[in-house]
Simulated scan of single mutants.
Amino acid sequence: MLGTAPNFRDLAGSTAGGGARVRRGLLYRADSLARLDDDDFTILSGLGLRQVVDLRTVFERERGVDRVPDGAEYVVLDVQRNHSTGADLAAILSDPDRARAVLADDGAERFMLEVNRMLVGTRDACAAYRKLVERAAYGPLPLVFHCSAGKDRTGWGAALLLGLLGVPKDDVLEDYLASNARLGGLMDWIMELVGGQGLDPATVRPMIEVRPEYLEAAYAEIDSVYGGFDGYVAEGLRLDPATVDALRERLLH
């Protein structure tokens, strides 16, 4: 839909429990909105967005300022609490010495598994994702939430919201994996970047893809720490059941 934000998409269409479906035009997920050209910004503005939720770190936000449509509230929910590490892949791969340290001994996949465990296991992440759910349940809509590539931090946010709406795991995974088909330009840019630094592009590929095992790492962490998704929602996110009910009332039909 947006050539300069290729991972922008509606979360609608999935079937939840009882045959209800996720409403269209209310909840969007995206990659960075800092790179939007004028044509895409016009399209975005035409959606009538009321909230733009930025999951990125302060370092990413300073490097790329979002283009926010008139009438939309801009909200920062930094899931990493201003850390320069974590899912900010561009920063890691732009530093050859740091990249070599991360990528050594097949480290890229281990790194991504740890990122996904962090997204459900840290206090900062839980606080940010709780607020995302509350804003989707009670705040003005439509809402878009995003990070830089729209695949990891945004990917878990989408998995969380769809899970709360009762969408089956197989459909959540399908939405999660859809990022791979939308990020060809990013992948090409990163491959060119690392190749020019003398790094083996094959060692980087696990960091610029989404894979089923990454999402499963998040679910496994939830099972280990909270005993399952319901425990994560109640104890980790500390979401009131009324908020989940409100979310479903708004977003299902």
Rank of each mutant, 00 (worst) to 15 (best):
E216A: 14
D188G: 05
F41P: 10
L47V: 05
V53A: 01
R61Q: 14
D200Y: 06
L55N: 06
V210D: 00
S224K: 13
H253A: 14
G150Y: 03
I190A: 05
T122S: 15
R135D: 10
P201F: 01
M207D: 00
P142V: 03
L247C: 12
S32H: 12
R123M: 13
R100W: 11
I92R: 02
K169L: 15
F59M: 12
G71E: 05
G48C: 01
L162M: 09
A20C: 03
L164M: 05
G184M: 05
T42P: 13
A30R: 11
R98G: 00
G139N: 03
L36K: 08
D106G: 13
L11I: 06
L44G: 11
G25C: 03
Y129N: 00
L27C: 09
R135I: 05
E109M: 12
D54S: 09
G157K: 02
A137F: 07
L251N: 07
L237Q: 14
H146C: 04
L239S: 07
L2H: 08
G150K: 01
L33K: 13
G227P: 06
V115K: 04
A128C: 10
A30Q: 14
A99Y: 10
G231C: 08
A246L: 09
V102T: 04
D245P: 06
G13E: 02
P212I: 04
F59D: 15
D54H: 06
V68M: 08
S84V: 15
D39M: 08
M1T: 13
V167A: 03
V210M: 01
F111C: 03
V133C: 09
P168R: 08
E174C: 03
Q51F: 07
L2Q: 09
G166P: 06
I190N: 01
I92E: 02
T57Q: 15
P201I: 09
R211V: 00
L119I: 01
E249V: 12
L162P: 13
G139K: 11
A20S: 10
L247S: 01
R248V: 14
Q197F: 04
G64Y: 05
L251Q: 07
E192Q: 11
D10Y: 00
T203E: 11
F59W: 14
R100P: 12
L177A: 09
A128I: 09
A234V: 05
L247K: 08
D230I: 12
D39I: 10
A137P: 06
L33Y: 11
R110I: 00
D70Y: 08
N116V: 05
L143D: 07
D200C: 02
D105C: 02
L193D: 02
G231E: 13
P140E: 11
A16C: 06
G157M: 13
Q80Y: 15
R182V: 02
Y232F: 15
R21H: 07
F111N: 02
G166M: 04
P140D: 12
Q197P: 00
P168G: 12
E134G: 08
L162A: 05
C126Q: 15
D66Q: 11
R130I: 07
S179Y: 06
